[in-house]
Write a protein that binds this DNA or RNA. Sequence first.
DNA 1: TAGATTGTTAATCGATTAACAATC
DNA 2: TAGATTGTTAATCGATTAACAATC
Lengths: 212, 212
Amino acid sequence: MNKISKAVVSRLPRYYRYLDELRQENIERISSKELSKRMNVTASQIRQDLNNFGGFGQQGYGYNVQYLYEEIGKLLGLNVTHKMVIVGAGNLGQAIANYGNFRNRGFEITALFDKNPELIGKDTAGGKVLDIKYLYDYVKENNVEIVALTLPKEPAQKIAEKLVECGIKAFWNFAHTDLGVSGDIIVENVHLSESLMKLTYRISEKNNSLNK
Amino acid sequence: MNKISKAVVSRLPRYYRYLDELRQENIERISSKELSKRMNVTASQIRQDLNNFGGFGQQGYGYNVQYLYEEIGKLLGLNVTHKMVIVGAGNLGQAIANYGNFRNRGFEITALFDKNPELIGKDTAGGKVLDIKYLYDYVKENNVEIVALTLPKEPAQKIAEKLVECGIKAFWNFAHTDLGVSGDIIVENVHLSESLMKLTYRISEKNNSLNK
DNA sequence: TAGATTGTTAATCGATTAACAATC
DNA sequence: TAGATTGTTAATCGATTAACAATC
């Protein structure tokens, strides 16, 4: 299979979300044209995107909602279980641990880690908060696949490096830094402050154009 | 000023972050070439991006770090105060309220809102949690500019519509839905589950290529 | 069979990179 | 002045849209 472009991959979860909604509305089939109207994109883009992965549709019919939903789910790796732990059990770490939908989608959060004694022992929907000193043994013994980093950037960087040595190959990074880890390690960043700045950029832009 | 492309805008916060680090290292000037090495982008892209907004550099010298930092800050609207409230005072809402750096960057979080009586009255760094029934009067009386939506999608959609009627023009949306609000309303989305799916896409992709 | 709609090729558009003249 | 490095134009690359033949 050819390398799929980043732009296409980043649209897959949105297709998945819309197909889930269609499913819940008991809609059986949908054409690229109809879907394009719902999603506010071009029908051409939908067909091009899906055809990167082979033909999911049928001429004259469109796409079967349930089938396409499942196929995209497989592409997104949602047909297998992913073991994840959370490092940093503050509000953000707890928010992720307690978000039920992750579990429904095959994510198995089994523990949180923190150095703060007041948090250690606390119960969440994603398991107990453990002392961070047990982190490295834990990930090795439990075949953890993904580590979510919800802590400040300096410890995040150090801990990530040690986790790479323990064999971790995928990070969901909320720390405000680009983790400096080697190229074959997967890092998906969520930079909340950068998102907020994009919002205020657009506010300023709008204000400037009004005062022109 | 011509319309700046989305791709350029989305890179500005990252420039801003790197310039802040340079500043803290007391580095006075930097060339596009040096910065490109640090940031892992091309020097050409940096110069092109910055020139969308006018000449911030000087031939033979490069860019003055402090000056460029401030100018990008202005572009991002960080030179003015932004009043924000948070709707949904669960872990995620509290995480945002308690994140100190927002305040340093000119964001003024003055209250959270929730319908849950157990949360109402609770104190955070972003003010008290108030009963959601006071939300609409509050935003009107306090000239709130941005509303962060950290609650499930159904109430998020309804509340957003009512807030638009109250004059709110910018949403920072964490609900798993594309807010259906009119075109001149600014919506910046943070879809955590979509981010996590992009991560697992890359994990599957990698596993598939190993088993080929 | 006729109509609908995909899969896919071709055309367009936009973003990134390269090159270099301008200038500090 | 000579060297360095920007600002900016031109070339390349990639992504999106349009068009249409294939086919259900």
